[in-house]
Design a protein around this nucleic acid. Structure first.
Lengths: 339, 339
DNA sequence: TTGTACGCGTTATCAC
DNA sequence: GTGATAACGCGTACAA
């Protein structure tokens, strides 16, 4: 493999000039450029990936931690950050956190050893203590989708509680009085907060989710199906079903259909996240829109700002509120049924 | 980010010793080791990925070019090479060739700039001329699944023609006399050779594939479906259908079912590749087993051997022959129907 | 506009 | 068993 010195020698210039020609870093006389390009071609020169990476570690680069690439939610998130990085001309390195606290911590380590200066992390599994330690150790770390008290200026988060509360209220206002819910079995911030929101809205109207009206399962289509089976076995009776997210909601619709109940005729169903499926399913899902793209952008902006030379104070909006997207899976109860 | 010198200073040793402790390269006194490990932990030291990569470029490393990771065929292939690399303690770098000659060439470049010393490539789209140039330029390049004349000692290939011929003969021997085929539309070695094999077997028995009995389409399930629709529109009449590969065969089965024809009752169908789906479909597919794992291993062995110091001459088996795996999608024609 | 010289973090080699 | 020192290949201040 030819190296940059070989090219330089062949072209009769210094290695620095070869670098300039390749990267367009600074102006080079046309005749020189041609000589270099000829040499480049003649040796079919390939810059060494590793040497480049090493020499460029000084440049600011952004790191991203996501759980996976294969879910729509993370696709949107990643796309958004990729666009942001491209636009701001910073390198982006991505690491997979997976489904565990260890995986998330490992991902951070990976990014650090890749020389990332700023990091945006979507974390589900790290504890508040662990996150606090990380935030203290890594000044440029920004959290996407978690709120850690004391670090409000480095968090971009969705108010799940208020979102869930608003969604429940929508159904209450539509006349529903018999509720059930299916929640994600894992106790992460999202599931705890959404449940709290539902309860709060219901209690505000003198209702509450009884134990036999609450089912927990995997956060998947199959999980949603199973959860509804649980509810029906419990002989829970409900006209409105609150679901942790869209995938569970869709699974729930199938389970209800298999039990002879149609949506929204017999049961009103609402999801959360406004994922792609919510728009393409039948019936289309009423759900909460999660402004991932916006939030990802804000997180990227924040992270980059934290390593910028000029630490200008920019207004930071950390809290985002999901809004109801009304579609076809819920309905207003007829008056006679309510009264 | 702490650097290795910081760790060394804190532990009161030289950077070299820190490296030895981390990598277990050579013996280190227990007391020294402990000091170093303490320093490592205290600074929560992360070796720089790029610096490591650069310093390690001397080590032999193997490169692999595949079209994609998401098809079963390439999964098997990749798995096999990964195991091989692990076993032989060489680093493995993988690059995606995609669906074009440019992509394949690009992948090779990527591997070279990553410092790969030996390369195994699965190429579909590069021309024989391009491959010849590459083989001349890169002494350690080994081709998987292509035969380039003059480089027999660096090719590991499947004899598609003879394989296809054997498969067609099986059906002839089973009494079939009315044939049709569906082939991949792209003219790559595989599709050309398999077609040639079919024709050869049929001509040997005084038959031939008439134009209206040949359909071409994408090499996918949907493509297989479409191809059969073409055949039926052509009013082609056949008791045996030769398919380019398993996915097209499976699509074909669906199309036939939709047309009221059942497999193997009305039509005998055979695939190629013996992919995962062939064993799990209904009916299970009679197909040709493609010994990817074995071939990948041989290619890896060959590539590594070409950069080995001791150039011992090892017997090289380049040509592989697929064998018929008889399952349920074809049948012997009853005597009365034949006579 | 171009060249010199140094740094990046690690590892191999040779001394000691 | 351990420490200097020299690569590894490129980018980039700084100097010319």
């Amino acid at each position: 493999m030819a190296k940059i010195d070989d090219v330089a020698k062949l072209a009769g210039v210094s290695p620095a000039t070869v670098s300039r020609v390749m990267n367009g870093t600074s102006a080079v006389k046309a005749s020189t450029r041609e000589k270099v390009e000829a040499a480049l071609a003649q040796l079919s020169y390939r810059p060494s990936h590793s040497a480049r990476a090493l020499a460029r570690t000084k440049k600011t680069s952004l790191g991203l931690v996501v759980a996976t690439f294969s879910e729509p939610f993370f696709m949107s998130l990643t796309e958004s950050i990729v666009a942001f990085a491209t636009e701001n001309e910073v390198n982006l390195t991505t690491a997979i956190g997976g489904d565990s606290a260890e995986g998330e911590a490992e991902a951070i380590d990976t990014l650090l050893s890749h020389g990332c200066k700023a990091i945006v992390m979507h974390s589900k599994y790290l504890s508040v203590e662990q996150l606090t330690d990380l935030l203290n150790a890594i000044p440029s770390l920004v959290l996407l989708n978690r709120l850690v008290l004391g670090f409000e200026d480095r968090c971009v988060w969705l108010d799940n509680r208020v979102g869930a509360e608003n969604m429940a209220r929508r159904l209450i206002d539509a006349g529903h009085r018999q509720f059930a819910c299916i929640n994600r079995a894992e106790k992460i911030d999202d599931s705890v907060d959404r449940f709290a929101g539902w309860q709060r809205a219901l209690q505000h109207h003198g209702m509450a989710l009884a134990e036999h009206s609450v089912a927990e399962a995997d956060c998947t289509l199959a999980g949603g199906y199973d959860a509804v089976v649980q509810l029906l076995n419990n002989k829970a009776s409900f006209t409105a079903l609150l679901c942790y997210d869209d995938s569970m909601a869709l699974g729930a619709i199938r389970a209800l259909a298999d039990a002879g109940l149609s949506v929204p005729k017999h049961v009103s169903i609402v999801g959360f996240n406004d994922s792609y499926m919510a728009r393409t399913s039948y019936p289309k899902l009423t759900t909460m829109h999660y402004p991932v793209e916006q939030m990802a952008l804000e997180a990227g902006r924040l992270a980059l700002q934290r390593i910028a030379a000029e630490k200008m104070i920019v207004q930071h909006v950390g809290r985002y509120l999901p809004v109801v997207i009304a579609r076809q899976s819920d309905r207003r109860l007829a008056m006679e049924a309510v009264s």
